[in-house]
Design a protein around this nucleic acid. Structure first.
Lengths: 194, 194
DNA sequence: CTGATTTCTTAATCTACCTTATTGGATTTA
DNA sequence: TAAATCCAATAAGGTAGATTAAGAAATCAG
């Protein structure tokens, strides 16, 4: 099992001793998810914070017309969870499935809490990444209110260049909040303009 | 100076001794903001987490057509800040001004950091409220993608009944992401339907 | 390798919401 | 108390993006 990536991820914000590293990884469980398989369904209770080491996940809801709306992609080195359900331990509205065959590490809510008491630095770590995530989400709310579809596509291209190559276009459409048909049009215009 | 409200707010998530309470409030600075006065302008660096004890603030951006888009209201018992700027200590894009004459308590970034080392429980507290805020923002992203203007208005009514009475309609329009004219129409239909 | 399925593109029509404008009432300010 | 400003409501024309449909291209499973 390869913990190098998650250790590097954590080390961006806190410094760990060898003992603390070992203690941390002992709380993790690894899992493999095949393309199109789910790791969380809506109406389930989310038990884990999920860290992606390989492949790519997506978190999305389905509206009452049956359309999918993607809240988040999780390529390698990213965390994903249904935060509402994870915190409240009530059934959530997020589906998480694999866009490609994917390897993940799972940190259960219980283990996370133990980790916080055993190694308080981790409380600091999760505060920081939660803050960063909050900042990104607030900006996304504003972008969705102030920008046109074309501008949102441009922002996505700048912000997630690796995802642009990796993802089918209709998933990007579902993330920026337009239909695949309209994104196709928007994209054609966007590239004509340069 | 009245610290009862902020102590009660903090006590929702952590338990403080008398000493810790006193230590905490010694870090706070109080300020009064008149209606229409600013406490933060865009392109400034946000130095404080702001806690409202009285009145009401709003956080918003201005787009390149000069239209305002409200990200957040802060009635009494709420925290507000330009999280991006506060964390990065770079110039932000949020304006924060007062909708009514408002009393606030300010916790500077520096004092907050001191607080975390002096009383680690506060790191826990801020992790929790940041998580809650993240959950609300993620849901807002999804609501904006999946709901019609009328449904978003209904959600706002349910979620913030006190604000509905308190705020002029055009501010609610600016929060849910429609023009005041369209909200007027939407609202008329909404109430006709019950 | 091949048929099946998924994905992308284009185009015509449609609709939720925007823009602009006007009116009258309510609040603020002088 | 007047004047100025702000605010809610309504209406008509305009636009970004949705819907539907259908063919082309790419990808996948056997």
């Amino acid at each position: 099992m390869n913990f190098a990536l998650i250790i590097k991820n954590v080390s961006k914000h806190i410094h760990l001793t060898k003992d603390e590293e070992n203690h941390f990884v002992s709380f993790l469980k690894d899992e493999k998810i095949k393309r199109k398989e789910f790791i969380l369904h809506e109406n389930e209770i989310c038990e884990n914070s999920i860290f992606v080491t390989n492949g790519c996940l997506r978190g999305y809801t389905i509206d009452h017309h049956g359309f999918e709306h993607i809240l988040q992609f999780a390529p390698p080195d990213w965390w994903i969870a249904d935060m509402y359900s994870l915190i409240s331990q009530k059934p959530g509205n997020l589906n998480i499935d694999a866009i490609e065959d994917t390897d993940v590490l799972l940190l259960s809510r219980k283990n996370q809490e133990k980790l916080f008491t055993d190694v308080p630095k981790f409380e600091h770590f999760f505060r920081i990444i939660t803050e960063n995530s909050l900042v990104a989400n607030r900006q996304r709310v504003l972008d969705n209110m102030t920008l046109t579809a074309q501008q949102r596509f441009a922002v996505f291209c700048e912000h997630y260049p690796t995802l642009i190559e990796r993802l089918p276009q209709k998933l990007i459409a579902s993330y920026i909040g337009v239909t695949p048909e309209f994104l196709s049009k928007v994209k054609a215009e966007y590239f004509r303009q340069r």
